[in-house]
Amino acid sequence: MSSYRRAATRRNIVLMIVASTLLLIWVFPLLWAVIVSLKSESEVLAYPPSVFFEPTGKNYADALFGDFSILSSLWTSTIVATATTVLTIVLAVPAAYAFARLRLPAKKTMGFYTLATQMVPPVGLVIPYFLILNKVGMLDSYEGMIIVYLTFSLPFAIWLMVSYMEDIPFEMEEAAFLDKASRLQTLWHIIIPQVRGGIAVTVIFVFLNAWNEFLFAVQLGGNNVRPVTVAMYNFVSVEQTLWAKLSAAALIAMLPVVVIGIIAQKQIVKGLTVGAVKGGGRR
């Protein structure tokens, strides 16, 4: 018995070592970015990389208030991501309710259409959008950017919400004989409170994707609308080796999504797996 237990302990130790090594591979780039962001510019270029040094907060101060301030980009990202999220939810929740719960003409066709729009590669959209927005003078505008962001957020949000709508027990709405007004009331007072969790998950996903978007932002934005992702990219292409400042700026830019990610970790995993575990719902 004791030799069996010793083997089990040894096995656990090996498991922990292997797992920790893998863990390190995923943590390291971020951890290293944090360390680099605390170095002075001369310290950064030391090779082999120094581990012991006098940490400085100067890079963070510069990234926020210095010559390379990303504050205005942070504000732009906040506006674009928030507006996209609100608009997406307003459009997606009612549509998902109809898809999941109601008799609807051409339901299959519309469901398939929604799914198909989700598959469209973004590069196939950025080209026509550039030409169209250029023609109507809406390049580098908030309106244009938010419209474009609907292309990836809306199909995704509808499908995610459908899977949450399907989980509501059917007794919740015996709506067969109701008029239009009371149907709306049913949706507002009974259904929406039931799927609050699902809406929260959808909000998180849409906001994260909008915040992190780059391809549309870099080509359809400009001096007026420049989200943080583009600001990060410009940083490297213009200032080749200010890598300590880049690290600080990037970490500030990613702070909102990382915080959301850690707080809402359970909900995000649930959102990721809602299709996988259920095998994609009832369709």
Partner: peptide, 21 residues
């Protein structure tokens, strides 16, 4: 927790981190 971090990062930032750091 660790697994959620790369997922929520912007791909452009991931590309930049790898390219430099």
């Amino acid at each position: 927790i660790v697994a959620i971090l790369p997922i929520v990062l912007a791909p452009v930032v991931v590309g930049l981190f790898w390219r430099t750091l």
